[in-house]
Write a protein that binds this DNA or RNA. Structure first.
Length: 610
DNA sequence: AATTCCTTCAACCGCAGGCGC
DNA sequence: TGCGCCTGCGGTTGAAGGAAT
């Protein structure tokens, strides 16, 4: 960008000089923003709005006494309009302007064979785009190239406008409040950058994404948790609301859940004030993550510390012993959450800890199982950071931690109510989920590696110095990939005499959690851990076995858990009845956690075809 | 001062959904 | 229903600049 301040005569000389240097370029004079014209003669007086363009060396005139301050950008690739006449000039060949910013080679071509430019935008291009948007509004981006000659594809124009040229954009670094908001939002919605950006006026999804990626790299390196406990806590501070929402969900009236809609609307319309608002004040807490969020809100550490979790288990066991079922568990997840909160309330202090990356392989099967049960749909969930926001066929995409499935179809995760005896009803999200080796591919963004690394870090931190040496080599990614298949819930309605709908009975009638069952969770070792994903199927539980899990499991909650579920069977009629109940193609699973032959689950590589 | 490493961020890419024909 | 176009989203890349050596 050159600044030329001159009277007209000198300006013309200068422009001619540029012309001699750059050839038959187009010089673009933006009259917006930094461009200023102190005076101009008649021919240009009506062009003082936007996008004054002229061609070097051609007959333009301006009053000889005019003094112009011109910010010049060079636009050597497109034809420009001149006094309303669109002039299509012979194409400037890229190789004729090797010094031009951006790239030409391999660029896509527009309809007229115009080679589109790639690479950084020039201010001249910006001005053209701004001009176009001012005249035509946003949208119709592909017409930018057609109407202005700007040799940028529509997507590029849209991106440039959205990320850089929009007048409402905030410049500068994110504020502390905005960063906190992003962290909390990420804990809730995962990598939904656009959604976050919509709630952060003046910020772009790209900006937020870059912030997050930078942040996780930094924290990864430092071995710090991704989610500060305070962030998570505030993210679910309104427990009552969560439970209320949850209860309504559990009543099955999802679509008409006023609370849900209210919460959703509130989230979308609450007019987030980055200076004042924290996400904790927002009641947007999708059901699918209520439990995990709640648990995390208790500062529940993940990996859960053995002491805490043992304590929690013991508490639950005591309650189980006295009541057989979880007290207060009346078919509502929220109720269970309340129960769990009560059970763990005395230990919340010890719960506060590492909420971030860190799935501990320091197996404590009891607790992991327990807590896996408690977190039905969590991105951060099991390991604090795994997430699977997209369930593409056959694979789980390991995206960075969030506590929530962003595209949660809330109806997909209704659990707990009206399940038959000894069953835990689980609905898995659409699409099969598996844990495939490609998770460790470079495309996986290194998250798995990060996870492993984090776990090592944490484990090392917990161990005595003498143990650290072994710690570092305790788990490697390859180890994990080779030895770990994670069994997801595969379930089927047991062929019981009761052929009623699985939903015809309430959980509080049937959910039975016994201390015995808790103790029956097999000891685990990483090498034995398996992940199996099946969909639209159920796992049966022998009647003489009680489920360990109080009703809300979901597959990815088991990621990294040490559960190995017994072989599964499918009962079509039960599955069909479930689907009929749901009225949509949802996966369902009834999971029972009996004393299954833990190693009999098929690995994900042996998934039966559905 | 030169080089390497690291961080940041703008921009590209592929994909998916919506829409009109 | 299929196709093409447009738009939006999320993942990824690579250039630029700063920090470290």
């Amino acid at each position: 960008m050159l600044k030329i301040k001159s009277n007209w005569g000198r300006s013309r000389d200068i422009l001619s000089h540029f012309h001699s240097i750059f050839g038959n370029l187009f010089l673009y004079c933006s009259l917006s923003g930094s461009f200023e014209v102190s005076s101009a003669s008649a021919p240009f007086s009506d062009s003082l709005g936007m996008g004054l363009q002229f061609r070097v060396g051609e007959g333009f005139s301006i009053g000889p006494s005019s003094s112009i301050v011109i910010w010049l950008g060079f636009l050597n690739m497109c034809s420009v309009k001149n006094d309303g006449d669109t002039e299509r000039l012979p194409k400037e060949q890229p190789d004729s302007s090797p010094n031009d910013e951006g790239s030409w080679s391999g660029s896509p071509t527009a309809g007229e064979g115009v080679v589109l430019k790639k690479g950084p935008w020039t201010s001249a291009e910006d001005a053209i785009l701004i001009d176009f948007v001012k005249k035509h509004g946003e949208g119709n981006w592909n017409s930018v190239q057609r109407n202005t000659g700007l040799r940028r594809c529509g997507k590029s124009c849209r991106l440039r406008w959205a990320n850089h040229l929009r007048p409402e954009l905030k410049k500068g670094a994110l504020t502390q409040e905005e960063e906190e908001f992003i962290i909390q939002m990420h804990a809730k919605v995962g990598n939904k950058w656009a959604r976050m950006a919509a709630l952060l006026p003046g910020r772009t999804d790209n900006e937020i994404k870059n912030f997050w990626n930078t942040r996780i790299k930094r924290l990864q390196r430092a071995g710090l948790p991704l989610y500060p406990p305070s962030s998570i806590c505030s993210g679910a501070s309104n427990e009552n609301q969560l439970i209320q929402i949850d209860s309504e969900f559990c009543n099955g009236d999802i679509e008409n859940s006023g609370v849900l809609h209210e919460a959703m609307n509130e989230m979308q319309e609450f007019g987030f004030d980055p200076c004042k608002t924290t996400i904790g004040q927002v009641s947007y807490v999708p059901l699918s993550d209520i439990h995990s969020t709640f648990l995390l809100s208790q500062g529940l550490e993940w990996p859960y510390t053995r002491s805490l979790l043992n304590q929690g288990v013991n508490d639950i066991k005591r309650n189980i012993e006295s009541e057989t079922c979880l007290p207060g568990y009346h078919g509502s997840l929220g109720s269970f959450v309340s129960t769990f909160k009560e059970l763990t309330s005395g230990h919340s202090e010890s719960m506060y800890g590492n909420l971030g990356l860190g799935y501990s392989y320091d197996a404590d099967p009891d607790m992991k199982n327990l807590l896996s049960c408690s977190i039905p749909d969590s991105h951060a969930l099991s390991h604090g950071n795994f997430s699977a926001s997209r369930h593409s066929a056959g694979t789980v995409k390991l995206e960075l931690p969030s506590l929530q499935c962003p595209d949660t179809n809330y109806s997909n995760w209704i659990t707990c109510s009206d399940a038959p005896p000894h069953y835990i009803h689980v609905q898995s999200p659409p699409g099969n989920v598996s844990f495939m080796p490609d998770c460790a591919s470079p495309r996986s963004n290194g998250l798995l590696e990060a996870l492993v690394q984090e776990s090592q870090t944490i484990n090392c931190g917990k161990k005595q110095p003498s143990e650290k040496s072994s710690c570092s080599s305790a788990i490697t990614l390859s180890d994990m990939m080779e030895s770990t298949t994670v069994n997801f819930c595969t379930a089927e309605w047991e062929e019981t005499s009761d052929q009623r709908s699985p939903f015809s009975q309430s959980v509080d009638e049937h959910a039975q959690i016994t201390s015995n069952s808790l103790e029956e969770i097999p000891p685990t070792a990483t090498s034995d851990t398996k992940m199996v994903v099946e969909q639209d199927s159920t796992i049966s539980t022998p009647d003489n076995q009680s489920s360990h899990c109080p009703g809300f499991l979901r597959p990815d909650a088991l990621l990294g858990s040490n559960w190995n579920l017994r072989d599964s069977r499918r009962t079509k009629e039960n599955s069909d009845s479930f689907l009929a109940l749901q009225g949509e193609d949802l996966s369902s699973a009834v999971v029972s956690l009996d004393s299954c032959p833990w190693n009999s689950m098929p690995s994900i590589y042996q998934l039966p075809e559905h």
